[in-house]
Design a protein around this nucleic acid. Structure first.
Lengths: 144, 144
DNA sequence: AAAGCACTTGCAACACGGTTGCATTTTAAT
DNA sequence: ATTAAAATGCAACCGTGTTGCAAGTGCTTT
């Protein structure tokens, strides 16, 4: 639980969603900059009696509403992340393979001038992997 | 069947793989520039009695050997495509939403100079969607 | 061309996540 | 507190990933 209950409740209300227990729990775990979790990872953080269908529906709802983004890493794992101030999931992301944070990087946006003649752009998805600034500064062994 | 049997057989041999019927069939359907298919799409093109496990293992083998690339579109659909001369699946791809071709676009590669101070690059995946040059020229109604 | 071996396939079976329908419970508005 | 609307929990189904194993096939050697 990173953010307090008030914050999350009003956040849900802002987006026209009822403030149910599971939704608050899910949001509280996704709260914080760079936090990105798999559905499984979220499931493991919730009380064990939580129904997997409800979690599935919650995440689907959040994704539809644009509250969270689904991002695919290395063509395999799908992570969920609070959308923050970026409405569209179009912008670039940076995934740190050390601390497993997923950061928005709109400054990395694709240079469309390199698009060959005749090609029309519609959308782009870019995920860059590497080591983030925090992790490369601390050269000490660092877990999580 | 786009390529002839000889081509495909020698292609398999080159990569140290036995030239079995299914492998040839799968390759023949993936042959050609820009062709990218879902596992389901491939399955539908094969004889109906084909075992799904065998197809699964064939595609896994091809992917491991680097013969085909797996590319994820819009964070959902996973397509297979012959790797061609690009060994790493790192380079950018362009997906045409009209003709559903998936083209390699190494010229679109990410501009890493925009990476903020302290960030270390390791790999990147970029998929651009839009309409390809061929499709935007033919403004007539065009299917597939 | 035939034999033998390693590799491949087909089948059965299980795991697991996505998905739906419906009855029950909870939320939020009155 | 009442009530309607929305969310949840449960059972159940589907499709795909994955494995083990027996049977079949491709390929090399003679």
């Amino acid at each position: 639980m990173v953010a307090n209950n008030k914050d999350i409740s009003s956040f849900l209300k802002t987006h026209g969603l009822a403030g149910t227990i599971i939704r608050k729990q899910v949001l509280s775990h996704l709260w914080g900059d760079g936090v990105a979790l798999t559905q499984k990872e979220i499931e493991e953080k919730l009380p064990p009696e939580t129904d997997r269908v409800t979690l599935y529906r919650t995440l689907r709802l959040f994704t539809e509403k644009g509250i969270v983004h689904k991002i695919v890493l290395n063509g395999e794992t799908q992570k969920f992340k609070i959308a923050g101030r970026f409405r569209k999931s179009d912008h670039a992301h940076f995934y740190c393979t050390k601390c497993h944070k997923l950061l928005c990087m709109p400054q990395l946006d694709v240079d469309l001038s390199d698009l060959p003649e005749g090609f029309q752009f519609s959308s782009a998805r870019l995920v860059v992997e590497g080591i983030c600034d925090t992790c490369s500064q601390k050269n000490q062994t660092q877990t999580q």
